[in-house]
């Protein structure tokens, strides 16, 4: 309860600060909207020329990747900016101040910001998610709803954990920008691979996306199972929560080990 009240206070403060430059704020939102809009436009151009990819229809692919984006937008909304800033905070020693507060530094970093720049992405994801669902006419039985909801939650945890892991690397004085952009860059990032059914990639890449950086569990496996797609090892779709739990524990431990390291060596 205390945290919610504090979060609301922080949001007010954060947005008041941003509204000081309201023209810039507006530009940011417009730019983000257009950037995401264009991605969908490109998607539309591709499927203007083709009916399906690897046996997935346009709407099935759209449903899959909006599922992934939905979880990703939510996750980034909370964790992207703190984990991006932490490298700088550690390098300049400003992280010290976070350690002198009666709230854990992680919670503090998450609640002190409000990444409205992810709202356009979230908005587009929701719109096209609803649109694709309408087109697909999925038979939403109770089990399916529960399954889908749990998978969505798992996707949120997986994305967040990966973000936290990259952030925690900053405690080892690693410059993590390159790793972050290798994973999530809008043009070149590895995350873009899970916008399409991963069957289209070679086995090595499939293994990478399944076992090393489990992006495939954020949408591909669960959605394939939900839609009854004929994909190899489709039962894997059940494993998303397990994967989420494992990577969640890894990121939690890594963060705490990193924090301990900072505690014992300083910047």
């Amino acid at each position: 309860m205390k945290y919610i009240k504090l979060y609301l206070r922080f949001v007010i403060v954060y947005m008041k600060g941003k509204l000081e430059y309201h023209f810039a704020l507006l530009l940011e939102l417009i730019a983000n909207t257009i950037q995401i809009g264009i991605y969908f436009a490109g998607f539309w151009v591709i499927f203007y020329n083709f009916e399906n990819i690897a046996g997935w229809s346009k709407y099935e692919v759209l449903f899959m990747f909006t599922t992934s984006w939905l979880a990703y937008s939510f996750s980034c909304f909370f964790f992207w900016s703190p984990m991006r800033d932490i490298g700088e905070l550690v390098r300049t020693g400003k992280f010290d101040l976070y350690l002198t507060r009666p709230i854990s530094p992680f919670v503090y970093m998450v609640i002190q910001q409000f990444q409205y720049t992810f709202l356009p992405r979230l908005f587009f994801s929701v719109v096209f998610w609803v649109y694709s669902m309408k087109k697909l006419q999925i038979d939403w039985t109770w089990e399916r709803v529960v399954f889908y909801f749990v998978s969505l939650l798992a996707a949120f945890v997986i994305f967040s954990s990966i973000t936290v892991i990259t952030g925690a690397m900053s405690f080892w004085t690693i410059k993590n920008e390159e790793i972050v952009s290798l994973l999530t860059d809008n043009n070149y990032g590895l995350k873009n691979f899970c916008d399409y059914p991963i069957q289209i990639y070679g086995e090595g890449m499939q293994a990478l996306l399944t076992f090393v950086i489990p992006y495939a569990f954020t949408a591909y496996y669960p959605v394939a199972m939900l839609l009854g797609k004929d994909v190899p090892n489709s039962y894997v779709g059940n494993l998303s929560p397990v994967i989420a739990l494992v990577i969640g524990i890894i990121s939690y431990s890594l963060w705490h080990i990193g924090l301990k390291r900072y505690n014992s060596t300083g910047a």
Partner: peptide
Amino acid sequence: SALFSSGSIK
């Protein structure tokens, strides 16, 4: 490659 292999070119 996958798009062209899908045999659904319009």
